[in-house]
């Protein structure tokens, strides 16, 4: 009897711990929305999102240049990392020998462990001058950001795609080889299509990571409030806007930064939900 009570008590405690993450999520969500929504309503939803001017000193808050900036940098990062990550995961899952895999896979996963400020630092000291001297502009640019972010999201996309490829039953490979396919044909025509949804989910999650990254982006992006028209233009993203101005913002300005957070929150939530749904479809 006593033991049963103890068991019940322990399971309740564990349940509470598990629920605390939901609690934290709820609190953060409520807080961001409560702080941010008034500014959005005051400016008008459409003006807030599609307006061009962000002038905190005059109380004008529109974030379109930053939305454009975030998406430009994210798209650039995907252009850099998706081809790499796909080739990497296909090689590791389908072609690499045991030893190669044992070395390369942890190495790629280690990339995820490097602090983003280090990426930013390398970007500023190496990549930015390189772009300035060899390609043009002042170096702080969408291009620089895309390259660094592309490397940063490489482990996410690679390891999720890798898992998706490994989850394809060997019967697919055998079936293809038994029809006279070469190994590459079997991978390209039977295995990759079967892992398709998993790979798409990997890319979507990578997009979420790229759009949420802050530190490295601030250091390399240049942070100008313009809509980037060339890869060499500087940009400011939603995340960097919050981080750059929160130090001195107050009142309405501070709320506007929370409103920026609301938009970011919605974008990232949407990407995550999309990824989950794609994965669910694959399982079924």
């Amino acid at each position: 009897m006593k033991q049963a009570v103890r068991e019940a008590f322990i399971s309740k405690i564990l349940l509470l711990t598990a629920l605390s993450s939901i609690g934290a999520l709820t609190l953060i969500t409520v807080f961001i929305f409560a702080e941010g929504l008034p500014v959005i309503f005051k400016t008008g939803f459409f003006d807030f999102i599609f307006g061009m001017k962000w002038k905190p000193s005059r109380g004008i808050f529109s974030i379109f240049p930053m939305i454009a900036g975030s998406f430009a940098v994210m798209a650039g990062a995907m252009l850099v990392s998706v081809p790499f990550a796909l080739c990497c995961s296909i090689y590791l899952a389908e072609f690499a020998g045991r030893t190669t895999r044992a070395i390369v896979k942890p190495a790629i996963e280690l990339l995820a462990g490097i602090p983003s400020v280090v990426y930013g630092f390398i970007g500023v000291t190496v990549l930015v001058p390189f772009i300035k001297n060899n390609i043009g502009g002042n170096g702080f640019s969408v291009l620089g950001c895309s390259i660094v972010l592309g490397i940063m999201v490489l482990p996410t996309i690679t390891s999720i795609s890798y898992d998706a490829l490994r989850a394809v039953p060997d019967s697919y490979r055998e079936g293809a080889l038994a029809l006279g396919a070469t190994r590459w044909q079997a991978v390209k025509m039977a295995v990759v299509p079967a892992a398709g949804s998993g790979i798409i989910a990997a890319v979507i999650l990578g997009m979420g990571r790229a759009i949420g990254e802050t530190m490295a982006v601030i250091m390399i992006a240049g942070n100008s409030l313009i809509i980037p028209l060339s890869p060499l233009d500087p940009v400011r993203t939603l995340t960097s806007n919050i981080a750059l101005e929160m130090g001195y913002a107050s009142g309405m300005h501070r709320q506007a930064l929370f409103a920026t957070g609301v938009i970011l929150f919605v974008i990232i939530m949407a990407l995550n939900i999309l990824a989950t749904r794609v994965i669910k479809r694959a399982v079924r």
């Binding site: 697919y172 055998e174 079936g175 039977a190 299509p193 079967a194």
Partner: peptide, 12 residues
Amino acid sequence: GMVFQHPNPFAL
């Protein structure tokens, strides 16, 4: 050609 024990059509 080979037909396997478990039917293995591709996910196509």
